[in-house]
Amino acid sequence: MLTLTTSAAAHGVATSDAGYIGEITGINLLPFVYLGAKHMFTGYDHILFLLGVIFFLYKMEHIGIYVSIFAIGHSTTMLLGVFFNWAISSYFIDAIIGLSVVYKALDNIGAFQRWFGFQPNTKAATLVFGLFHGLGLATKVLEYDISPDGLLPNLIAFNVGVEIGQLLALATILIVMGFWRRTRSFWKHAYTANVAMICAGFVLFGYQVVGLFVVP
C-alpha cells in the first residue's frame, strides 16, 4: 500500500517545472510549448492509450482520423478545464485514464463482442476518453499555479506542445510497430501484448485509487 501511495503521489508535475512556471508572468510561449510536449511525450498513460488506439490500424488515413478525434477531445477539456478552473481530483481523473487503457486493449482483442455481443463505437469511445485525458492534462496544468497574465496564449502554447509531444510519441510507436508487424511474431504475440496493456491499465487505476483514498 505504501509503495502504491508513493507512486500515485509521484504522478504529477516536476517540482522544478512548477517552481519556474509559478514565478513567471506574462506571455511565455516557448516554455509552455516545451512543458506541453514534455508532459505528453513522457506521459505513460497517454502513450499506452495511443498504442491501443493504433495497435491494429495500418492505413495512415485511419490513424490520422483516430488521433485527430483524440486530439480534439483532450484539447477541448484541457483548455476549458484550466481556463474555467475545473478543480477535479487528479487521482480520480487519472484512474479513469487507467481504465481507458483497459477498455482499448479489451476492444482490441474483441472482448466486448464475445462477452456482450456488440461492438462499441470506437470513434465515440476515443472522443470520450480524449475528453478525460484532457481533464487529466488540465489538472496537471492547474498544479503549476499559472499567472492569469497571458493565460490564454500560454494555454494555447501548452496545447501546441501537447500536440507536438503526441506526434513524437506517435511517430516512435509507429516506427516500432512497423518493424514488429513485419515479423512472424506480431500475430503470435498481439493478444499477449494487449493482455499486458490491460494489466498495465489496471495497475495505473490501482495507483490512482490508492492515492484518492490514502494521500491527504
Rank of each mutant, 00 (worst) to 15 (best):
K59D: 08
P31A: 01
A10M: 11
A8S: 13
H11F: 09
A71V: 14
A9F: 15
D17W: 07
I47T: 09
I69G: 04
H62G: 00
A71D: 02
H74I: 04
L50R: 09
H39N: 12
I21C: 04
S16F: 13
A8R: 02
G73R: 00
D45P: 10
M60F: 11
V53C: 02
P31Y: 05
A14F: 07
Y44F: 13
H11R: 04
T15G: 13
H74R: 00
K38P: 10
G12R: 07
H74D: 05
F55Y: 13
S75I: 03
F49V: 00
Y34S: 10
V13A: 06
Y34R: 02
L48V: 00
G22F: 03
L29K: 01
F56N: 09
Y44M: 11
H11N: 10
G43S: 10
F41L: 13
Y58G: 07
F56A: 10
A8Y: 10
L48Y: 05
I65A: 03
G36L: 15
M40V: 15
V33C: 10
N28H: 14
I47H: 14
T25I: 01
S68N: 09
F32W: 06
N28D: 14
Y44H: 03
L57S: 07
I54Y: 12
A8N: 15
Y44V: 09
Y34N: 11
H74P: 12
L35K: 14
L50F: 12
I65S: 04
I72R: 00
H74V: 03
F32N: 14
G36V: 15
F70V: 06
L35W: 12
H74W: 00
Y20P: 00
L51R: 05
G36S: 12
A71F: 14
I72Q: 01
A71K: 01
G26I: 02
S75R: 00
L29I: 14
H11V: 04
H11K: 04
S7R: 06
G19V: 01
K59V: 03
L30Y: 13
I27T: 07
F41G: 06
S16L: 03
H39R: 06
P31K: 01
I72V: 15
V53P: 03
